[in-house]
Lab assay of single mutants.
Amino acid sequence: PKDEAKKKVKEAIKRGDEETAKRIAKKYNLDWDDAKREADEER
């Protein structure tokens, strides 16, 4: 599900692992900028 994928993307971003985050986002066709902004807001 997309929500689960987005959570994984945000967790990867918070760990500083943007490569993984981008790969997950691409795989699930998520909006990378959107997920990154959300992760930054939660930090």
Score class of each variant (00 low, 15 high):
24 I>W: 07
4 E>V: 11
20 T>I: 08
38 E>P: 03
33 D>E: 14
27 K>Y: 14
27 K>V: 09
8 K>S: 08
2 K>G: 09
10 K>W: 13
42 E>A: 08
16 G>Q: 02
40 D>E: 13
40 D>M: 12
5 A>P: 05
35 A>Q: 05
21 A>L: 01
14 K>N: 10
24 I>Q: 01
5 A>W: 14
27 K>A: 13
30 L>M: 05
43 R>M: 15
36 K>Q: 08
21 A>M: 00
39 A>Q: 04
34 D>L: 11
20 T>F: 10
32 W>D: 01
10 K>F: 14
23 R>W: 10
2 K>E: 12
17 D>Q: 04
22 K>M: 13
18 E>A: 05
42 E>F: 06
28 Y>M: 02
20 T>A: 12
31 D>E: 06
30 L>R: 00
37 R>G: 05
20 T>W: 10
9 V>T: 02
28 Y>C: 04
16 G>N: 04
14 K>R: 13
9 V>F: 11
7 K>G: 04
20 T>M: 13
11 E>Y: 05
11 E>W: 06
31 D>S: 10
12 A>W: 10
24 I>K: 01
10 K>L: 15
43 R>N: 12
21 A>K: 00
18 E>G: 03
28 Y>G: 04
23 R>I: 10
38 E>G: 05
11 E>G: 03
38 E>V: 05
18 E>W: 15
36 K>V: 14
23 R>C: 14
6 K>R: 14
5 A>G: 08
26 K>Y: 10
38 E>L: 07
8 K>W: 15
15 R>W: 05
42 E>C: 12
7 K>P: 02
27 K>S: 07
43 R>F: 13
16 G>C: 11
37 R>W: 07
15 R>E: 05
14 K>T: 07
7 K>W: 13
8 K>H: 09
3 D>F: 12
19 E>R: 10
36 K>W: 12
31 D>L: 04
40 D>F: 13
21 A>S: 05
1 P>R: 14
23 R>E: 11
35 A>P: 02
37 R>L: 07
23 R>T: 08
14 K>H: 12
29 N>L: 05
9 V>K: 00
38 E>A: 08
7 K>I: 11
2 K>Y: 14
7 K>M: 12
28 Y>A: 09
18 E>P: 06
19 E>A: 12
20 T>V: 08
16 G>H: 03
6 K>E: 04
42 E>L: 06
33 D>W: 09
11 E>P: 00
13 I>N: 01
29 N>H: 10
12 A>C: 11
21 A>P: 00
1 P>H: 13
35 A>T: 11
